[in-house]
Structure formats: C-alpha cells, structure tokens
Simulated scan of single mutants.
Amino acid sequence: MQIDFHHGVTYIVARLAGFDHDEANIIAYCAQYVDDASNSGLIRFNNGALFRRMSSAHKLLDYRNFKQLASHHVWIPFHFLPGNGGLPAGQNPEGKFIQKLICYPNSYVAQEMLRECINNRDHPHGLHRLGITMHVYGDTWAHQGFAGVTHQVNEAKLILDDRGNPDLIKTEKINKYFRKNLLERMANAFMSEAFPIGHGAVLGNPDKPYLKWGYINGFNQIIKRDNAKDFLEAAEQMYKWMQRYRLGDTQADVPGLPVRDKKLIADKLENIIDKSGKKRHRVWLNSILEGEFSFGKAEVTYVAKGKGSWKYEALKTEKEKDESGEIYSYDANFLNSNWKLFHDALFSHHFYIIHVLLPKYGICIV
C-alpha cells in the first residue's frame, strides 16, 4: 500500500470509527510514517540528553545497500507480517519453514497483534501504536503471498493481466527496470538474490489499489489479485478494529462500514487510477476537504520531513538524512512530541512482534 491508503484511507476509516480529527490525524500520520522513518540510531542533545530511535523503512527499491534492504528486522515486523499459513498458534502449514513466513490477510497472527495494541491503549503512545498497527494490518492484504526474507517464493516469473493472460509488456518493463537500476550497481551473480526480497520482483503492483493483475511465483503457482477488492476488505476490517480500540474491548461485536461511505471508498479505490501514489493521495485529501464522507469536512495534511513535519517539531531539522555526530537543541516539549512517541511505539511494536508474538507461532527470526 502507498500513501493514498496508509494516510488518506486510514484517516477516513478512523473518523468513521468515531475518532475525532486530532486523534485520526495521529493514527493516519503514524500509519504512513512507517514507510518514511528510514533513519535510526542515537539522537544527542546539547544538554546531554540522549534518545534512540529506530527505522521502520528502507528507501523503496534502493539496491545500493543490498544488505540493508534485505534486513528482515524491518520487513517482517512492519511490512510483511508472517501469517503462519492462516493457521492459529500451535498449528503449522504444510511444507517448509518459509510457509510460516508468508504474509496472509487478516491472519491469526495479525489479529493477536491488534489485541495487544488495544490492551496497551492507555500508554502515552497508544494512538501512535494503533497507527503503526494499522499499517502492518493493511499490508497483510497488499503483501499477501510474499515474505519479508530473501526467498524464491517472492520471485515473479511472469506478470499476468486482469484476464489471467501473460502481460508481456509489463513483464518486459519490469525486466528493463531491473536491468537498468540493478545491474548497473551489482554483479550479475546477485540478480537471482535481489529479486526475491518482499515483492520487489513485481515492483509496485501489490500497492496500487486500482490494479487487477496476477503473476507466476517462484513455486510456479498462478496468483490472481484484485487490489480494489482486497483494499476494501482491509478498510472494512480496520474500521472494526478501530471501533474495538475505542471501546477497549478486543472481542466486541461491531458493525461494518456505513453503506454510503463504503460505496464511496470502493468507488475511489477502483477509479482513482493515477500511477503516482502522491497524486492519488491528493485526490483523497481533496475529497475529505470537500466533506464527501459522513463525518463532514476536514483539512488533512502530511509532511514526512522538513518544516511542518513531526520530526521538525521535535528536532528542528529539515534534513532528509541525519548526519553522524550531530547535536540537537533540546526542548522540554520533546518528551511529549508526536515524533518521539511514534518511535516509542515502534520499539514497543517491534519487541512484541519479534520476541513475543511470532515465537508463539514457532517463528524465530532474531
């Protein structure tokens, strides 16, 4: 999923679920910032204070640092949550260990992740963690069938069109992309390794809501995808879990999306067809500004870095990439800043997924 869904649709779903504008802003900002928090390490302040932040993203398709790109400590907890074959804890899917790591929509693993988030909603970073969790949860639909490790399951031997026929033009475009952007930087010997990282071999196809497409994976299985249908189901389930969060009840029987709003979301997922996620995002934000949804008009913005961003508010820096050894001016408001609370939530989420949740399903990736 891209910024149009992670930020725009998440804000809409949060408002429909009963969160007010400011709360929904926090949830939606965090859901998108998971894809933009690419710096990690120690922050040093001029008064001697220290703060350690972590990254939840690598630059998309940045093959200049192959080892960093392949880091399962980023891909697995934040983007490709293992699905255990759709089975509950204590059961194992048939086949090898990789079958446990493949992302599965609305899996038992994902639902346990959501319950943990709700059970910790009273923490200062509760809403921030909800936003992070909504990102990971939504991606279980977009990234289904792929794994956050280097493996042949992520290969795409042939791209298919919406009728299941070979899409030779798109396949060749992807091949040309990799030849241009990868082979210039790497020896030919690494080609087979670079394809099977996440869904790199099919580029952005899983993340564009309007696409109907398919591919033949590394196991020679024909996979058919209808992104608009999958993304609408993700929005529906996110709406239900956000209601449970507000109630503080992980088992609450809650309704689905309001009929009119659901129809509007479905129509936009299918018919906003610009290839640029940022351009699609602007369409969603304009719809919110014009009051097309039942919660009324609202002005929503998102700035990842620089002035107007959470990071700027916390550290007063406009830099895209932090410099080693930099000293920041400390402000007493830092401890309550959204940027700091987002990173607190990242650490909580990461620790729980890696050290508590996945081991319950027989998955060890430490």
Rank of each mutant, 00 (worst) to 15 (best):
Met1Glu: 03
Met1Leu: 08
Gln2Lys: 09
Ile3Gln: 03
Asp4Thr: 02
Phe5Arg: 09
Val9Lys: 00
Tyr11Glu: 04
Tyr11Leu: 04
Ala14Val: 10
Leu16Asn: 12
Phe19Met: 14
Asp22Gly: 08
Ile27Val: 15
Ile27Trp: 08
Ala31Glu: 07
Tyr33Asn: 10
Leu42Ala: 09
Arg44Val: 12
Arg44Thr: 14
Asn47Met: 02
Phe51Thr: 05
Arg52Ala: 13
Arg52Tyr: 11
Arg53Tyr: 11
Ala57Gln: 09
Leu60Arg: 14
Leu61Asp: 07
Asp62Leu: 07
Tyr63Val: 15
Ala70Ile: 02
His73Ser: 05
His73Gln: 14
Ile76His: 05
Pro77Leu: 06
His79Arg: 12
Pro82Arg: 07
Gly85Arg: 05
Gly86Asn: 08
Glu94Ile: 11
Gly95His: 11
Lys96Gly: 15
Gln99Ala: 13
Lys100Val: 04
Leu101Lys: 04
Ile102Phe: 07
Ile102Pro: 07
Tyr104Thr: 15
Ile118Thr: 14
Asn120Leu: 13
Asp122His: 12
His123Ile: 05
His125Pro: 00
Gly126Val: 09
Gly126Asn: 04
His128Trp: 01
Arg129Asp: 02
Ile132Asn: 02
Met134Phe: 04
Asp139Ala: 11
Ala142Asp: 13
His143Phe: 13
His143Gly: 11
Gln144Met: 14
Gln144Phe: 10
Gly145Val: 10
Gln152Phe: 04
Asn154Glu: 01
Gly164Ile: 03
Asn165Tyr: 13
Pro166Ala: 08
Leu168Ile: 07
Ile169Thr: 13
Ile174Val: 09
Ile174Phe: 13
Asn175Val: 07
Asn175Leu: 09
Lys180Met: 10
Leu183Gln: 06
Arg185His: 15
Ala187Tyr: 10
Ala189Lys: 14
Phe190Asp: 15
His199Lys: 05
Gly200Asn: 15
Ala201His: 13
Val202Asp: 00
Leu203Asp: 00
Pro209Gln: 09
Tyr210Val: 06
Trp213Val: 04
Gly218Trp: 11
Gly218Arg: 07
Gln221Ala: 14
Ile223Val: 15
Asp226Trp: 06
Ala228Glu: 08
Asp230Tyr: 08
Gln237Val: 09
Met242Pro: 05
Leu247Ser: 05
Gly248Arg: 03
Asp249Ala: 02
Asp249Ile: 06
Thr250Asn: 03
Asp253Ile: 12
Pro255His: 06
Pro255Phe: 04
Pro258Gly: 08
Pro258Tyr: 09
Val259Lys: 12
Val259Ala: 14
Ala266Ile: 00
Leu269Arg: 03
Glu270Ser: 14
Glu270Gly: 08
Ile272Ala: 00
Ile273Glu: 13
Asp274Ala: 12
Ser276Gly: 11
Lys278Asp: 12
His281Cys: 09
Leu285Met: 12
Asn286Leu: 04
Asn286Ala: 03
Ser287Asn: 08
Glu290Ile: 02
Gly291Val: 01
Gly291Asn: 01
Phe293Pro: 01
Phe293Tyr: 14
Gly296Glu: 01
Val300Gln: 05
Ala304Gly: 02
Gly306Ser: 03
Glu313Ser: 14
Thr317Tyr: 06
Asp322His: 10
Glu323Ala: 15
Ser324Lys: 13
Ile327Pro: 06
Tyr328Ala: 04
Asn336Cys: 05
Ser337His: 04
Asn338Pro: 01
His343Gln: 08
His343Tyr: 07
Ala345Trp: 08
His350Cys: 03
Phe351Trp: 02
Tyr352Leu: 12
Lys360Trp: 02
Gly362Pro: 02
Cys364Arg: 05
Cys364Met: 02
Ile365Glu: 09
